[in-house]
Amino acid sequence: MKAVTWHGKRDVRVDTVPDPAIKEPTDVIIKVTSTGICGSDLHLYELFGPFLAEGDILGHEPMGVVQEVGSEVTEVVPGDRVVVPFNVSCGTCFMCGQGLQSQCETTQMRETGMGASLFGYTSLYGAVPGGQAEYLRVPFGNTLPIKVPQGPPDDRFVYLSDVLPTAWQAVEYAGIPAGGSVAVLGLGPIGDMSARVALHRGAGQVIGVDLVPERLARARARGVHTLDLREHPNDLADVIRELTDGRGPDTVIDAVGMEAHGAPAARMAQEMTTLLPDAVAGNLMRRAGIDRLHALRLAIDVVRRGGTISIIGVYTGMLDPMPMMTLFDKQIQLRMGQANVWRWVPDILPLLTDEDPLGTESFATHHLPLEAAPQAYENFQKKQDGMIKTVLRP
């Protein structure tokens, strides 16, 4: 089959690799029909080389059609249409029972000190082959795949894999009061969808901050009060406070994470790790503070006293100024952590109707064949060609 594979920094390719096969009686094989490129895939493209091996298959936002099932699979049959969550979770352990699928005890990466395994996301999270491919092996076939209706286009459902539950959790963790205010820092796919979810759930004021014109225009068209970071290089916090009765918003969603603009020293440290031997770079990335914390510091600055910060952007640093990797991975409050996909599916699935209140069918800016993935990664990383969200069609 064809698959998108990692070969080094800024080097992804479409290779021919062996087809996946049933290994366990509860496995399912799906033929992938749509698969997204996520902003966190750019971390692999740019930074996480020490935790990748050449030829690793990328991608964690797939959906498709069941082709083959193991002997103990009873909940789906060949021909069923399914979305695959990015968490590899069993659905039956204590953590899954708490709605914490990102901490699944069956797939938890104890040897690396991380949470549940993830599709297509480094040895830190299990080195599980990803979904930017023609076919995908899915474990836990009775509990992991999300069965969706036949008929509506893929774009109605594919974002159940990551974007929708991640944004929903960001808003849930923010705890926006009815009619209250929220500032969303970063209007990439997750920040954009977080703003949409916040408005849908009754936020009275949603302020969105970014510096990419296409992202700002898109959010503005859906009722978000947008602020261009380039126009407020020194007074952004004051402007946000002025919009919120001088107090600051009730809540802030940090949808940026470690790749925030600003903090040139931290940016240099991030880039220098890619020049080090993998063993040294991996140890540095896991134990040293190399994050650009501009967005988090802005969130702390602008949120009102007694407010809430919901962090959905990924951080990795451990020492400076706080152990962000541990805080993020273990979901310690503020409120933060990898999204627990299945926890939010019952809330989201009823919204994927003909009315499409969250605008899923028009959410992607680009639909491309799998073979176009290398150029798509480059354009996405450089914010070119108006690319905000890309769905690949194997």
Rank of each mutant, 00 (worst) to 15 (best):
L144Q: 13
M193L: 08
P357Q: 08
P139R: 04
T122Q: 07
I311S: 11
T35C: 11
Q103V: 00
V83C: 04
R222F: 09
A116T: 00
W168G: 01
F48S: 02
P369F: 09
P350M: 13
F363P: 01
Q101F: 13
T106R: 04
L136V: 06
E214I: 09
A295T: 03
S40E: 05
D329R: 02
A279R: 14
V28T: 05
A281I: 07
F380K: 03
T74K: 14
A376L: 07
R287V: 03
P249D: 09
L185I: 15
T122R: 06
G179Y: 04
T326I: 13
H294L: 00
Y45R: 04
G120Q: 09
V391D: 00
S161K: 05
F51P: 02
E72S: 15
K31S: 14
L185Q: 09
G36C: 10
T226I: 14
S362K: 11
F86M: 02
N340L: 03
G223S: 10
F86L: 09
Y377L: 01
L211G: 11
I30P: 02
V17A: 11
P369L: 08
G191F: 03
R292S: 15
A219G: 11
S89L: 00
H261Y: 10
R304C: 12
T74D: 12
A21V: 15
P149L: 06
G202C: 13
L293A: 04
V28H: 02
R297P: 00
C90G: 03
S161I: 06
A265G: 14
R110I: 11
S71W: 02
D320E: 15
V76R: 03
G175H: 06
K330N: 10
I348A: 03
V206R: 04
D210K: 04
L216S: 11
L243E: 07
R110H: 08
A116P: 00
A364K: 05
D385Y: 01
G359A: 03
M63K: 00
L211I: 12
F157H: 14
M63G: 12
V4E: 05
M63S: 10
Y135I: 01
A183Y: 03
Q101P: 00
V341W: 00
R343H: 15
R286T: 14
D154N: 13
G180D: 07
R110F: 01
K9D: 06
H366N: 07
A237I: 03
M318W: 12
G248Y: 04
S102A: 15
D228C: 08
K382P: 01
D11Q: 13
